[in-house]
Design a protein around this nucleic acid. Structure first.
Length: 111
RNA sequence: CCAGAUAAUUGGAUGACUGCUUUCUAUGAAAGAGGAAAGUCCGGGCUCCACAAGACGAUGGUGCCGGGUAAUGCCCGGCGGGGGUGACCCUAGGGAAAGUGCCGCAGAAAAUAAACCGCCCUAAUUGAAAUUACUAAGGGUAAGGGUGAAAAGGUGAGGUAAGAGCUCACCGCUUUUUUGGUAACAAAAAAGGCAUGGUAAACCCCACCAGGAGCAAGAUCGAAUAGAGUUACAAUGGCUAGUCUUGGCCGUAACUGGGUUGGUCGCAUGAUUUGCUUGGUAACAUGCAAACUAGAUGAAUAGUCAUCAAUUUUUUCUUAAAAAUUACAGAACCCGGCUUACAAAUUAUCUGGCAUU
RNA sequence: CGGGGCGUAGCGCAGUCUGGUAGCGCAUCUGGUUUGGGACCAGAGGGUCGCAAGUUCGAAUCUUGCCGCCCCGA
């Protein structure tokens, strides 16, 4: 948990576009390697999902997901970007956890 | 009880575990989204524009009267007009006798008013039933017909050849005077004898208001480096954030390519909030007391669970059980308004109807 | 934060300034032409003029407020 940081610059988001990619029901996961010994996470929720409140809520649920799972199972030197979809708003939190763990496994395998 | 009108309020509650942002007396404690935070439609504060002075028109806005306010296109009170059985609601509401434009179709005519059908008179001709009928000409007429959103006062009576504000009564209008009111305006009286069609959310006229840009304003610290090239004008040039004049300042302007896009302040004590007093019909203002109540920047205010509350649906003989839902919506410099969105609930006052006493 | 534009038939656009009849091209349908198809010719259908209120006798057009989309600047 101490290593978890957020991605802020738009350059890093552009890098993630060219990196690895996994699709899931309630979110999309992008990832790429960097040289720093940190786990970094970025969140993206586009305007098509709804107004500011819905977007905020999706982002918060994703953030709590990352806090619980990514701090334990994430790998050092990796940067992740989570793109929220509409499902993330109403899906049960337990199902979200399972989805995220599967997605993580898949993206780690891809190397 | 039913149906409404107006004003105002609330915007699920409690707890546990795990987390986020800020502050502090720092192994802990405290605080942490709204009535609209929204739309960005107005008005201010604040900051800059090398803070210069004056004049000018342009452009935009506002538009009954009085008051409130830092200010407003906002609010309060009143007046006029319109709607509703009523409580009450709506209202961009100056000027059309300064000028210009427009009023399709229809209709005789759409604005210096006007004669299509009709009505009436005159003289002539024909016929003849002779206080009448027909035809054409000249004149009178605005009552009737028809068109239109709108036809130059309306209704009734008198009057007349037929008619007409031609005359009279009532209503409307215009002008003058008086009374009430701070005023918009209202009421009354007298006179005129109908003049001024509508449209200014058409141009326009009149009165009043507005310098421009915005916290990515702006200030400061640090890092990085570099400032370079081309063209034009060269003190007869350019800038001075609408234009002009005076004054002031300066090499200036355009293009090409390159670098930086970090931190801090601005930034939370304010036209502040709550309670009371006094003045005022009210908006609001004065005074006193108490309180400090978000400050993020890929952007905090959450995730999960439990109990309760409300509503809906299903099952059920009532009790009850299960499931679902709990609106609109997220601060970004700060205030005052406006507009728009909103599940459900509550309170007060008033109106109409029905029933009972 | 500031500025600008657009919304009209299935699609692309006129008409809005200067109020009165909603039109053009492609597409669709019908008929003709051809052995048949295309092209061509003739005709027809299809519109809450983004939504709501106001001004006016009358609004796609004027005014105000909303909704959606797009673009530009800092």
């Amino acid at each position: 948990m101490t290593n978890l940081q957020t991605i802020k610059s738009s350059r890093d988001f552009q890098l993630a576009k060219k990196g690895l990619f996994v699709r899931s029901q309630s979110f999309l996961l992008q990832a790429y390697r960097s040289e720093e010994k940190l786990i970094r996470v970025g969140y993206t929720v586009s305007k098509q999902n709804g107004n500011a409140i819905i977007r905020n809520k999706i982002k918060r649920r994703l953030r709590s997901l990352a806090r619980e799972i990514l701090s334990v199972k994430g790998k050092l030197n990796w940067n992740y970007v989570i793109i929220g979809k509409k499902n993330a708003l109403n899906e049960d939190f337990i199902n979200l956890k399972q989805e995220f763990q599967i997605a993580l496994k898949n993206i780690h395998r891809k190397i």
